[in-house]
Amino acid sequence: MSPALSPAALPTPENLALTELFVPAAALFVVLAIMLFYRAVAGPTTQDRLLAVNVLGTNTVVILALLSVGLDEPWFLDVALVYALLNFLMAIAISKFTVERGGVL
């Protein structure tokens, strides 16, 4: 568990297989996100659509984090962090603006 051991162990073929594990996982997450679009389109109330878009945003954050490992692009994590912030802000703002008196939170 020493910190000097793990970067030396990075270019082994086993670890390459480890990073290649992440792109199919991201593809499966994309499939789940496409399934979530049904609730975002056909939800009966505004809050249903907002909840589906919120879960979709969390899925997008996870997909960005998985692709940052799978494609070896570390700046995807910055995009994921900003996207998580904006997703939370959007959920709070819309759920506050759908109520007239604004008593949410």
């Binding site: 907002l50 919120n54 912030l85 939370f88 709070i92 109520v99 949410v104 939170l105």
Partner: peptide, 28 residues
Amino acid sequence: IYTVLLLFFVFLTNPTAAHAIARSAAES
């Protein structure tokens, strides 16, 4: 560090957002 920060942020904000959505549904 980014990833662990993102993990803690998702753990904090995701139930909070769902709570706000459920509460706005209750108030509407």
